[in-house]
Simulated scan of single mutants.
Amino acid sequence: MVDESGDFEEVNIEVVDVMIKMDNNHDSENEWISLNSNQKIINLLDLTGGVHEVLVDKFPIPTGTLKQIRLVLGDHNTIVVKNNLDVGETHDLKTPSAQQSGLKLKVDTVIEEGFTYDFVIDFDVDKSVIIAGKSGNINLKPVMRVTTAVSSGIIEGTVLPSDEPVVASVINTKETPGTEDDEVISAYTNYTGDFALWGVPTRTYEVILTPIDSNSKYKVTTIADVEVTNGEITVIEPAIELALKTGTITGKILNKNVVVTASTIIDSNVMRADTNTEGVFLLDNVPIGVYKITLTPAKGSGLAIIELNNEEVREDETNDLGAITLPDA
């Protein structure tokens, strides 16, 4: 079992059993085979960066078509959410009918004698946890997908900076008109910036890296042409540097026959640009933020240095400082 994504402190589920149903079309309880899974409580948010939880290690199953897998949950399902004081509070997760009938996943995989099959259950936390309106109850209505390792691959990578929480995702485009049934496969990075996308069908993908914080100084970054092969792990190397949100600062110096250097300090580094023949300067690809802009005339010009404070740079926008005349020194 692995986790896709979620915006909580903990999401704990109690797994009681894993069961399978072969190609008999009857829905009788007698047709389900228990795989004798160990009963355990799992925090789904621990399952990031390639970490997974083994529910059933090895179990012999009949040959034929494995139609469904059933995940049976217990009563000890909880969620931890931070309150207004930034303190984690534990709430019960209501799981309607899950404990009685289990959560059924369609598989339809042909099982042949002498082979080992690995099945990966991907639990989408974002879509599975529902906060009820007036009641305040938090319900668990699991949204999961199951894949077979032999018919899918894994994408792994590392995102820098590692302390920037990110969701990595790919879109599995179905061979049908429209996008309604397209499947998003996603996973959080862990505290070291690592992520793993499990159960990705063979194809070439664009990996999308989206900062969780909408106010992040980093923008959505994409890695193209990532090829996935069934049964293999594709590692994106080297580590992926998130692209900064940037903008531009410009202005025009009205003093004639003088070169002026516009500069600012970004993370202890100086960015500078000289005026052109028309007196225009351009500081391009400046990370979003608020800066002090220093305008320094060439030596011997007889003009004074001036500083412009609190100049804001917004994403994909140009801050035009307008026409500027430097005073005499």
Rank of each mutant, 00 (worst) to 15 (best):
V2S: 03
V15N: 02
V15R: 13
I20E: 09
K21R: 15
H26D: 11
H26P: 04
D27W: 02
S28E: 12
E31H: 05
S37I: 07
Q39R: 15
L44F: 14
L44R: 14
D46G: 13
L47N: 11
I61E: 09
I79R: 05
V80W: 13
V80H: 03
L85E: 00
E89N: 01
L93N: 10
K106F: 12
V107A: 03
D108M: 12
E113A: 11
D118Q: 12
D118N: 03
D126M: 06
S128R: 03
G133N: 15
G133F: 00
L140I: 03
L140V: 07
K141D: 14
K141N: 13
M144V: 09
V146N: 07
T148M: 11
V150D: 14
V150Q: 10
G153R: 06
S162M: 02
A168K: 11
A168W: 06
T173E: 14
T173Q: 10
K174V: 15
T176M: 08
T179Q: 04
T192M: 14
D194K: 15
T204E: 09
E206I: 09
L242Q: 00
N257T: 10
V259D: 05
T261M: 12
S263V: 10
I265E: 08
N269M: 01
I288E: 08
G300E: 06
G300H: 02
E311L: 11
D320R: 01
T325F: 06
L326S: 03
